Amino acid sequence: MGFRLPRIVTAKQSLQRSSSTENRESPKAVDVPKGYFTVYVGEEQKKRFVIPLSYLNQPSFQDLLSQAKEEFGYNHPMGGITIPCSEEIFQNLTQSLNDL
């Protein structure tokens, strides 16, 4: 009586590969470090930014989130929050938040 471990290992590897490919909601979702989240900013072309969760406590960032809610509601087809402002304004705001 023998065991067929190679077949079991192969089946397990196959299952892991298929589940990892099926669970890909967004390939970019994987590269967001813990303590950060993704937003998309821009008026026509949206640019992706990965920003710290600590920004959520800042009143100026909360104002941007309110504007995003008014304009887009809770439907964000890009997978992250879409913020309705220019990249330049967003970068100026995040730079001021980094300086705090």
Rank of each mutant, 00 (worst) to 15 (best):
T38H: 01
T10V: 08
L64W: 04
M1Y: 02
C85T: 15
Y55R: 04
L100W: 01
V50I: 15
N57H: 08
R7F: 11
L53Y: 00
V39Q: 00
T82I: 14
P6H: 12
T82S: 13
N92S: 13
K28D: 09
T82W: 02
Q45F: 04
A11V: 00
G80I: 08
S14E: 12
A11E: 14
R24Y: 00
F61P: 06
N57T: 11
S20W: 03
C85M: 13
E70V: 04
V50D: 03
K47C: 08
Y55P: 01
K46F: 12
K34E: 04
F37E: 06
I83H: 01
Q13K: 14
S14R: 11
Q91S: 12
K28V: 11
M1K: 03
F49K: 03
Q45G: 01
L15M: 09
P52E: 09
S86T: 15
F3C: 05
I81Y: 01
V9N: 04
E88H: 12
Y40A: 04
A29M: 05
N57Q: 14
D31C: 06
L15D: 07
I51K: 00
I81H: 01
D99L: 11
Y55C: 13
Q16D: 10
S19C: 06
E44G: 05
S14P: 00
F61C: 08
I89S: 11
S66K: 13
L93G: 08
R48G: 05
I51N: 01
D99R: 11
M78T: 13
E43N: 14
T10N: 09
Q62D: 09
